[in-house]
């Protein structure tokens, strides 16, 4: 347990370090730009002031270094704010493109693969979803006869997502694999119902109900 907490902590630190490096990189670019554009011009301007107006030069020197200090402090806070906001936005986008997934291979129902897809199914990730299902079937390590999609976390679906589901069902049927859905609710259920697609799938109220039902259908010798 302690090991997993440490690994999670390490990943968190690594992510924040990456964010931090990005921050430093942007910061360094700004500094270099500032250096080449502004400081080159200042060099020639300050020399006569230094030679003939020492008091003015002293005031200018203090003002310049103080202003640079304040400007860099503001720049640092600004970049840090922007990087944090952008990082959060990117992580939300990534979560939409590649939602979390959980795969179960229940031992008491041979040939069954349960796939939980934790995100809305829409045009951004429909292709990824279809590819993942095919990959899971190919790499399951046993002949898959029933593919159950746990839809409890699929909060939304659009036309592309719905089409992807129908296409997947057809392609799996060609491979003699049945496809079912469970925990279908909310807007996902409404869309499937309105498009008259709900009847095309075997729908279970829950994973447990699906396991009970599919377990009964298995011949005794296959269960063993």
């Amino acid at each position: 347990m302690k090991f997993f907490i440490t690994v999670r902590g390490f990943h968190k630190k690594l992510a924040s370090f990456g964010e931090y490096l990005l921050e430093i990189l942007i910061y360094a670019c700004f500094i270099s730009g500032y250096f080449f554009l502004v400081l080159q011009f200042l060099n020639g301007f300050l020399k006569p002031v230094f030679d003939y107006h020492k008091t003015l030069y002293a005031i200018l020197a203090l003002t310049l270094i103080s202003m640079q200090g304040f400007a860099l402090e503001r720049l640092t806070s600004g970049i840090s704010h922007v990087v944090r906001r952008t990082g959060a936005f990117i992580s939300v986008l990534l979560r939409l493109f590649r939602p979390h997934e959980t795969i179960r291979k229940p031992a008491n129902v041979p040939g069954l693969l349960v796939y939980r897809f934790a995100g809305p199914l829409f045009f951004f990730n429909a292709g990824h979803f279809a590819r993942r299902v095919q990959e899971l079937i190919d790499t399951a390590g046993f002949p898959v006869s029933f593919f159950l999609i746990n839809a409890e976390a699929i909060v939304d679906v659009d036309a592309t997502g719905a089409e992807a589901l129908v296409d997947l069902r057809s392609s799996l049927k060609e491979e003699n694999i049945m496809m079912g859905l469970c925990e279908v609710k909310g807007h996902f259920r409404e869309v499937l119902f309105n498009r008259a697609l709900l009847a095309d799938f075997t729908v279970y109220p829950s994973v447990a109900a699906a396991l009970r039902d599919l377990g009964k259908e298995q011949p005794e010798e296959k269960k063993k």
Binding site: Y34, F35, L46, T55, I59, L60, A61, I65
Partner: peptide, 22 residues
């Protein structure tokens, strides 16, 4: 210190600005 040294001609503020950037 910057003011007093600059008045005495001991400060090259350009060098300070470049170093501070780094």
């Amino acid at each position: 210190g910057t003011l007093t040294h600059a008045l005495k001609g001991n400060v090259d503020i350009m060098v300070a600005l470049v170093m501070h950037a780094g």
